[in-house]
Simulated scan of single mutants.
Amino acid sequence: MRPFDFTGTAVVTGAASGIGAALAPLLAARGTDLVLLDRDAERLDGVAASVRSASPGRSVDTVLADLADAGQLREAADRIVVDHPGTTLLVNNAGVALGGRFDQVTLEEFEWVMDVNFRAAVRLTHAVLPVLKAHPGAHLVNVSSLFGLMAPAGQAAYSSSKFAIRGFTEALRHELAEDGIGVTSVHPGGIATRIAETARVASGVDAAGAEQGKREFARLLRYPADRAAQRIVAAVERRRPRLLIGASAVVPDVLVRLAPGSYGTVLAAATRLAGLRRGA
């Protein structure tokens, strides 16, 4: 498959901050028109304005939608298909986090994570896929996670959603090869985004545990979002089937391969050791 041609239109979800916001100017600089989707109107408008200023020759459209709402997503998808028939790149990047063991999570909370992290990507891809197939050489990117490679305690909902998107992506990679469409599964490690700030904590977790969990989660987020975006753009250009970003994704991936049945014990020991060091 030839290297990806960036001169079409890219749809990027979760574009108001983090990796999505970092992808927008990089794609525009390569000649890509943009459709930026998010639920945060103020931040989304800020990203769009910045891109328009830096790349005045590019078209930048914004779509406001809460991906947890199937009706809003359907309306957004219909608009994108009608208004942007030149779409050649879809980046399903939007994601939310929920901390807590499965017995602390309500089914409504679990479904919220699945709706945003998995079902929204499925629904948007299903809607946009005919447009991509009309342009041989198009590309699809689905952002999974480190927790789509491993599933630690306290991440039942999040890991379920990210393993699901990983499986969905791998199946599409095989199905769409004959149509000349590239597919990349992205597994970021601890990327410095707002996900810890916006994460929800299961209703069964007490307040003290919730604050501690958020602090521990935030400490993991060190890899710059702009560097992550650069690596994704390079992976798209080279048609890489899978991209792991950061040592915090690469090392655990090796651990899971070497000890698929017992990596949880290693993770627990490492977590305890890290806690002792912080308390020293």
Rank of each mutant, 00 (worst) to 15 (best):
D115F: 00
A229F: 06
E170T: 06
A70M: 00
V113P: 02
A151T: 13
G180H: 12
V128K: 07
F168L: 15
D38Q: 02
A54K: 03
E108D: 14
A97V: 11
A229G: 06
T106P: 12
L107D: 11
L221T: 12
G246I: 15
S144V: 08
L90K: 03
P188H: 08
V201Q: 05
A121H: 15
N142Q: 10
G20C: 07
T88V: 12
A225R: 12
A274T: 13
F147L: 13
M1D: 04
A24Y: 04
E42K: 10
A151D: 11
L267F: 10
G261Q: 01
L64E: 01
P130H: 14
T271H: 07
R257P: 02
V183W: 06
I19F: 05
S185W: 00
F163I: 14
S144F: 00
T193R: 10
A207D: 15
T169L: 01
N142G: 09
V105C: 15
A54T: 11
G182F: 03
G31D: 03
I19D: 06
F147V: 15
A28I: 00
G167D: 04
A156Y: 03
G275P: 06
R227K: 11
S161I: 07
T198Y: 05
A15L: 05
D40F: 03
A65Y: 05
R272S: 14
F6G: 07
A54H: 01
R238V: 02
